[in-house]
Design a binder for these strands. Structure first.
Length: 550
RNA sequence: GCCCCCGUAGCUCAGUUGGAUAGAGCGGCGGACUUCUAAUCCGUAGGUCGCAGGUUCGAAUCCUGCCGGGGGCGCCA
């Protein structure tokens, strides 16, 4: 019994199949097995009877009754009682024996519980942040960094092979502008109107030797500036706990003969999707659902940013990644259609390119709601945010709400009430567990979690808080699966909080150290050990530290 | 004008492959520290799930329209 809930779900499915006369109908949606919403509705509930009703032509409640009887036999001692409720729900109440063996399964699996659930493991390339090295990372990048990093951790935990990558522009007009801006500052002038205005540009001007020397080409200045800024970005990411497997330079797409960009272009030409018009080279993206065709090479022969992106996609594919995940800011959503079109034009299944749109982070200070502009130099840096509220609080804050939602970052609130961030509640639960288990001592813990340990409950019955905590622990595999499938790490943040809450309720209701008889103490120690392990696992998935004391 | 995302408690947000009486944190009010960590807990107040239709045994969830907020519609990146 490696996953007790999955086994239970299977038992329900088997019973349903038997009622149907053993014939599986293809279009039947799988029955759900949910944790009960509230007291008095059993421990788990299934809607299987309601789904069976049309096929059997019987009343749902009648079917639920039969299903319950069937399950009572199949599950024997595990099912304490069942109840037909509402329009035809079947509520199941499980025995303490079932909970005991469920906890054994949790302890056996240890930190590996819930891992490897992916039905079809894939080689995935996850590219994120990819902010141009024309400035340091801003607070909004913190959202992308936390999101991508947590998603990578979760997808790996789920069983996929994931490489993370940061793509940076070290060629093109933005870089040119950066160089010009630094040069201007070095000469004591204002940067160009479309250049970079931030104070860091002036700093760069003093750091880069020869910035004010007209004999040093602007390109060289730009190159130095990019190198310095990239270094700072890496330092910030390291501090934030975000690791990238590779940093990918755009420049390399333009190098070599033929260059990756030229190769991608040839491939598109051969496939017949390229044409010339008014001196420019176009990709017929409308063939694949885009609004209009897109330019690959400008009339001057210069490749567009889009052309580089196409070459980059092709490069990822050549490196053997079957799926490409691409979290981008909401301002890029208009770009999605042409990327997917190009991906298809290259001969790929468009479903294997997944652009993920992350909504913006708005800074709120006082009553003002400001958008951040890199070019104007109006932004809060990620480093500043980390200085203010720390890594854990920042990561949790960035992860707690759905990436599809605009995030309001209230700086006043973040500063003054940082201790009210739910992350501390979760960490506190972990610290409390650590402290308790330390007090209990390794030897006693080992005895309690041993495979032959004898467990019991005081009045012969588990407390509902104990049962709820175990059910929450057991639901990790489903949570991981849903989080991974929906590319929605905020689900894991919510789960962490719920787990901490369920533990805290257990802690409130059930004495652990010194509980009588010692078989009860053993059971509760074992439950605490399993909970601490899982809290640590979940915090790790979020990239948040799990302190042993606070 | 067309396209994408969002709208749930005073605030910040969960809950959306349709399920039972819509949840949490913060804030408000009233309580609990001689206790396994009070960064905690208990009680209480607080809701037309933006609005209006539709689909069905059942809708915050799916469909249509409208309102409000954000974003996008370059041979910029």
């Amino acid at each position: 019994m490696s996953d007790p809930v999955a086994a239970l779900k299977q038992a329900v499915a088997d019973a349903a199949l038997q009622l149907r006369g053993g014939t599986q109908t293809e279009s039947q949606p799988p029955a759900r097995l949910d944790r009960a919403r509230r007291a008095g509705q059993g421990h788990y509930a299934t809607n299987a009877a309601m789904l069976l009703a049309p096929a059997l032509g019987l009343a749902p409640r009648e079917i639920a009754q039969a299903l319950g009887t069937q399950l009572t036999q199949a599950l024997r001692g595990s099912l304490l009682r069942f109840e037909v409720a509402g329009p035809g729900f079947l509520n199941l109440e499980l025995s303490d024996d079932w909970y005991h063996s469920a906890l054994r399964a949790l302890l056996e699996a240890g930190a590996g519980f819930g891992t490897g659930g992916a039905a079809h493991p894939e080689r995935i390339l996850l590219e994120f942040v990819s902010a141009n090295p024309t400035a340091v990372l801003v607070a909004a990048s913190g959202r992308h960094a936390a999101y991508g990093d947590a998603l990578a951790r979760i997808l790996r935990f789920h069983g996929h092979s994931v490489s993370t990558e940061y793509y940076f522009n070290d060629a093109g007009s933005q870089i040119q502008r950066l160089g010009e801006s630094v040069r201007a500052r070095a000469l004591g002038q204002e940067p160009p109107a479309d250049g970079y205005q931030g104070a860091y540009v002036a700093e760069l001007a003093t750091e880069i030797a020869g910035a004010d020397d007209p004999s040093v080409p602007v390109d060289a200045i730009a190159g130095r500036a990019v190198a310095i800024l990239l270094q700072r970005i890496k330092a910030t990411l390291a501090r934030y706990g975000v690791h990238f497997d590779t940093f990918f330079s755009e420049r390399t797409l333009h190098e070599g003969a033929p260059s990756p960009l030229e190769r991608a272009l040839s491939r598109l030409r051969e496939a017949g999707h390229v044409y010339e018009h008014e001196g420019a080279v176009w990709l017929r993206t409308t063939t694949f659902g885009d609004d209009k065709d897109r330019v690959l090479l400008r009339s001057g022969g210069e490749p567009t940013y889009f052309a580089a992106d196409v070459a980059y996609m092709e490069n990822k594919r050549e490196r053997g990644f079957e799926r490409q995940l691409l979290p981008v800011g909401a301002d890029h959503h208009g770009y999605v259609a042409r990327l997917k079109a190009a991906f298809q034009a290259l001969g790929n299944d468009p479903d294997l390119l997944e652009p993920l749109i992350l909504q913006f982070v708005h800074l709120v200070e006082g009553d003002a709601r400001t958008a951040m502009s890199k070019r104007r130099g109006e932004f809060v840096t990620l480093d500043e945010l980390l200085d203010e509220i720390g890594v854990d609080a920042t990561r949790y804050f960035m992860l707690q709400s759905s990436h599809e939602r605009t995030l309001d970052l209230n700086l006043d609130l973040a500063r003054s009430d940082s201790s009210e961030n739910p992350v501390y509640y979760i960490q506190y639960a972990h610290a409390r567990l650590s402290s308790m288990l330390a007090r209990v001592g390794d030897e006693r813990v080992s005895l309690a979690v041993a495979a032959d340990a004898v467990w019991s409950s005081p009045a012969g019955e588990l407390h509902s808080s104990e049962q709820e905590l175990i059910r929450k622990l057991l639901s990790l595999p489903e949570e991981v699966a849903e989080t991974a499938q929906r590319r929605a790490p905020h689900r894991m943040a919510a789960y962490a909080l719920e787990l901490a809450q369920d533990f805290t309720a257990f802690y409130r209701d059930c004495k652990v150290v010194g509980a009588e008889p010692s078989e009860t103490e053993s059971f509760r120690i074992a439950l605490c050990a399993a909970t601490r392990t899982q809290l640590a696992v979940v915090l790790e998935l979020l990239g948040v530290s799990a302190p042993s004391s606070m």
